[in-house]
Amino acid sequence: MNADGSPEMLELNESAPSRGSGGVIELVVQGRPCLYDGDPDLGSLLEYRGENSLYVNVRINDEVLDQRDFENVPVREGDRIDFLYFMGGGLFVQPDRRRN
């Protein structure tokens, strides 16, 4: 957890412990392994990454979500999560890139 109480997401590397329990889960987001200790739902993960949920589709483990109430979608240890950005050519809101 960061000093301001926000979840901390770390890119996994060889020295990073792989805990996967006790509130920290290991995810693969956009093809990159990471640790996540925020609330284990997709809405929180999107918010943490600064993604605008209106302009992104989400796939979890290769399945396109058919629901947009992302706060009701759990994220679990080992999930592979891909954000599919709408890029129509102008009609898009860029995520606020705080972290990967």
């Binding site: 209106l54 302009y55 589709n57 396109v64 058919d66 599919l84 709408f86 129509g88 050519g89 102008g90 009609l91 898009f92 809101v93 860029q94």
Partner: peptide, 16 residues
Amino acid sequence: YEEPPPPGTVPSCAEA
């Protein structure tokens, strides 16, 4: 992308 983003909520083309 089954459907476009919700209409009326996107920024103008020139802004992006």
